[in-house]
Design a protein around this nucleic acid. Sequence first.
DNA 1: CAGACGATGCACT
DNA 2: GTGCATCGTCTGG
Length: 159
Amino acid sequence: MNGQILSGRIIEVEAYLAFEDEAAHSFKGETKRTKSLFSEPGIAYIYSIHQQVCFDVVCTTPTSVLVRSLEPIEGIELMKELRGKVNLKDLTSGPGKLCKALGITKQHDGIDLVNSEIYIVDDGFKSTEIIKSKRIGISKAQHHEYRFSIESEFLSKKT
DNA sequence: CAGACGATGCACT
DNA sequence: GTGCATCGTCTGG
């Protein structure tokens, strides 16, 4: 962003299935808001909730993965600037937070995540363990264990 | 147009 | 852990 690289390691995600998942936005069918979900795989689905925005990666439409938490790697100072003065551990520890920290807005909704200014790469990091747990912050279908996180020094600092 | 809702963040206990 | 502010989007009239 602005010639500055902002990067972070994804340490927590949640999966949202196509139609059998009552909590997914795709459950009620396509709307103006969810059109990116039904568009094509490999793009970003960015939606607003309350005063925040959340960032999804569309898999097989309309199935998506919500990026819940990030470990800041590059551009930390700029992230702090974008977020306002916050502690490092709070910089990207939530869907809305990480979007603001990375400068992601709704104008990025539906963009290609391979050839755009926002992209995901494999940094070769091998997690020792994938932690599976129940999803958080939703009112429906909470029993599904579609929340996945990885071991991280950053994560252990939080707790 | 009015009303309801939410994949949140923040302050507080 | 709990409660609430707050606003874009969806739905119904």
